[in-house]
Amino acid sequence: MKRLVAFTGAGISRDSGIPTFVELGDLREKLSRSYFNSYPEDFYNILKEFRGKIKAAEPNAAQRAIARFDIPVITMNIDSLHSKAGSEKVLEIHGNLTYVFCPQCNKEYDFDEVYNSIYCPDCDKILEPNVVLYGDMIPGYEEAMKIIDSADALLVVGTSFYTSTAGFVVERAKSIGLEVNIINEDAKVAVPEYIEEFFKL
């Protein structure tokens, strides 16, 4: 059986009611390491607002189809909707909003901790989000490359290619001769149709 891997960006979650960064104006610039270092309170207010949208969201047909066919997922999204849809093989290369951690004493706390304070209860250091910010290295990059190397085809869904991560992933897939299919419009219809056709071949 041919092996398919999905690589997803913010566009796949649009049908779940989560706006893309492009639709959120200057949010992309504020999710940077420099902004976090300069304005941590404002940064966390932004994340808390975004998390509110995530908590209210449900997986859509595209995410459910990926889960139903047990397709490994590499996602740039921090909304955890692939896991919520039932996908078990999910690499969230930009992290998620499930927890925060202290960079000094290494303790982890549920994300809800920042609703009380953005400072570590033990050492008073500013808590770090489990999110890869613009300006950070991507810790899951090598793992993502291994997943791609194990595939026969790559399905790319909902990315504008503004983020360099998307370019790296697709270039890797093309460089090893994978079939690459890109769906950026009407994902909730196009993705299930593509997957069903793929596994019929």
Rank of each mutant, 00 (worst) to 15 (best):
I71W: 03
A62N: 06
E185A: 05
S164E: 13
I66G: 01
K84C: 12
R3Y: 10
P72W: 04
S83Q: 15
I138S: 02
A56I: 06
A153V: 08
A173Y: 07
L97W: 05
S13M: 05
E179V: 04
I195A: 10
S83W: 06
L127F: 02
P59K: 09
D122T: 01
A166C: 03
A166R: 05
D42G: 05
D79K: 01
F43I: 14
E92F: 09
A61R: 12
A151Q: 15
A65V: 10
N130G: 01
I183R: 01
V180Q: 10
S13H: 04
P192V: 01
P72K: 09
D152V: 01
P59M: 06
S34G: 03
V22R: 14
I66L: 13
T20Q: 08
P19Y: 11
A153R: 09
S16F: 02
G158H: 10
S160P: 04
K53M: 14
D124K: 09
D149M: 12
A85H: 02
E196C: 10
E196F: 05
F43P: 09
R172A: 03
K53E: 06
S83T: 11
G9V: 00
F7S: 03
L27H: 05
K146F: 04
N45I: 02
D79Q: 04
N77M: 11
V189E: 15
V189H: 15
Y141W: 14
G158F: 11
D70V: 05
L178N: 07
I138P: 03
K2R: 15
S117R: 08
I147F: 09
E128Y: 10
P40R: 04
V157Y: 01
S175P: 12
T75S: 07
D70K: 14
V170C: 06
V191H: 01
G158C: 12
I138G: 08
K48N: 12
L127E: 03
M76R: 03
P139Q: 13
N96C: 13
A57F: 11
I54V: 15
K146M: 08
Y194M: 11
V131N: 02
N130I: 00
D136V: 12
G86F: 10
V73P: 14
